[in-house]
Design a protein around this nucleic acid. Sequence first.
DNA 1: TCTATTTGACCTGT
DNA 2: ACAGGTCAAATAGA
Length: 331
Amino acid sequence: MENSGEWEQKTLIRELKQGRELARQLQVHLNSPSSSHETRQVLVSMILNSLDKALSMLKCGTGVGGGEQQTIGTLIGGSDSPRSFSGSPRSEDSDRDFKDPEHKDSVSRKRKSSSTPRWTQQVQVCPGTGLEGPLDDGYSWRKYGQKDILGAKFPRGYYRCTHRHVQGCLATKQVQRSDEDPTMFEITYRGRHTCSQGSHLTPPPSSPEIQEPFHTGKHDHQQQPGEILLSFQTGGLRVTTEDLDSRENTFPSFYFPSTSNNVEGNFSPSFVSPATSNWGNQNFQGPESELAEIISAAATSAANSPNVSSGFSFGQLEFDPNFTFDNPGFF
DNA sequence: TCTATTTGACCTGT
DNA sequence: ACAGGTCAAATAGA
């Protein structure tokens, strides 16, 4: 290891350069009619990621390699297209939100159909950070249930978007603490955020994420992005699809792991991830090179950095080689 | 008073 | 029948 300060400065510069490069590319894409909205979103996410990382380095004064927290994602895609769960009122919970006592027995408490797209993200929180809980993913969630799961040591928490009733956002997530590794949490997201919060990159406050009874906090005291930023860093993320109709690469929004305040991007990926190599090694070599190219460029710096798993979690992000970014279902 | 969490009951899918 | 997912009344905190 070299002088950490020096290394940090290099990393910082690299990060800023990367951000600049991404911004430049975004500019190009903004002028290109053929560029998809999704592509731009990804670019924005990446830019924000870079900036966040740079900022956190400046603020913390610690290297990004600290890796207090690590996230690994798994995409469990349904066969639904995003349209179906953002636009169609069928199923989901909307049909059970009206509670008519008279119809109570006939009213469905329909469980989310198994076809609802879902994706899982594993988040590891290293102890000793004094912050084992709140893993802000950029959305505000409200807990609506908890259940002991057969074979699992820890109960599973059920959360829905806080704006469900206001904006009809049907996104939900489940948080399950890992048996073997209590510092690991498996978060399964379902449905896409249709609330304004979800359509912007603004990291809103709060995140109940881990409010397991055994935890400290009681409420998800609206955490400020800044706090979060200093609180943890993501180390890597992996996305896998499960249950996915591979022809329909239709995914809901997806969080780009972020070093700090979890800037999420509606990535709509369908990267599958066997989990071996890293992003920089361009596992995405689909025919659609537009995004792959962009990402590759951006990832290069990350991959090149001595500490690959540094904040910008592309280090472990993988794409399905067969994934096509401009899948008609999505873009 | 309002909003979020807790938790037992209820409902659905397998 | 069972396990998992959701509801909603009760409760707690701001």
